[in-house]
């Protein structure tokens, strides 16, 4: 079953075509890596899929809803975590969880039970009343992800979620992504780290607004007879005409 479908999705800003007729599908429970250099159009494409911006042409479906006409329904079926830190630093750990659970309309009772479960799972019981800003970055990121999937979304969009985190924390973070995926949550992730691209089930690489390749990391390495995804990526990125911004 496909939970994300894009058909010739295009976004133009004046004369500039940020996203140029991209088409792809993402299956339920899949970890889909959305790669591309800065300015390749990743963020714009992701914003369209999240219902934040409407496409100039083409169409898309997320969680079975049309991205143009049913963006409100999409918003309650997805989770989102941005490259900027997306929790409130001056709120305590459990206050952040409750706030977002409330925004996603979860009833109070359910929030209580699930919060206890989550804190136990993360080993954060002692930090329940700690202000989020005083947590180490790796912990914040973990919490941020947990909050993004707290309301059991069908799909979670992660926009460069591991920026600035050390490798061991990144490793732990990806374990959480796998766990979510095994629960049936589809993970749509953009990243700069090519070692992370290896963890994805399938990856697409965007160059100048177009999807240049889309396959599993192992197939891509085979086709380009490259040792790593890093090598594949650099070969693709070299084709770029647009300046990196």
């Amino acid at each position: 079953m496909n939970v994300i479908k894009a058909e010739n999705l295009t976004k133009r800003f004046g004369n500039f075509t940020a996203v140029d007729a991209i088409s792809f599908e993402v299956k339920k429970g899949e970890i889909f890596g959305f790669l591309g250099a800065n300015g390749a159009g990743k963020t714009t494409a992701m914003r369209m899929l999240c219902g934040l911006s409407s496409p100039t042409s083409g169409r898309g479906e997320v969680a079975g809803f049309d991205i143009e006409k049913q963006s409100e329904k999409i918003k309650s079926s997805i989770g989102y975590m941005s490259q900027k830190f997306s929790l409130y630093g001056d709120l305590k750990v459990y206050e952040n969880i409750r706030l977002f659970a409330g925004i996603y309309g979860m009833p109070e009772k359910k929030i209580k039970v699930r919060t206890d479960e989550l804190l136990e799972k993360l080993g954060f019981q002692k930090e329940r009343n700690t202000l989020v800003k005083s947590l180490p970055l790796g912990w914040k990121q973990k919490l941020s992800f947990s909050v993004a999937v707290f309301h059991d979304p069908q799909i979670v969009f992660l926009d460069e979620p591991t920026g600035g985190v050390d490798p061991s924390a990144r490793r732990q973070f990806w374990e959480m992504i796998y766990e979510a995926s095994s629960r049936g949550i589809t993970v749509f992730v953009t990243t700069h780290y090519m070692d992370e691209a290896e963890y994805c089930h399938r990856v697409s690489i965007m160059v100048d607004g177009k999807i240049e390749v889309l396959d599993s990391p192992s197939n891509l390495k085979k086709i380009y007879s490259a040792a790593s995804m890093d090598e594949v990526f650099h070969r693709m990125a070299r084709k770029a005409v647009r300046n990196e911004t």
Partner: peptide
């Protein structure tokens, strides 16, 4: 500035 607005806009909160 902190980026939380984006998270709010992606949420179902009107």
């Amino acid at each position: 500035e902190t980026g939380t607005m984006e998270v709010l806009l992606v949420s179902p909160m009107r």
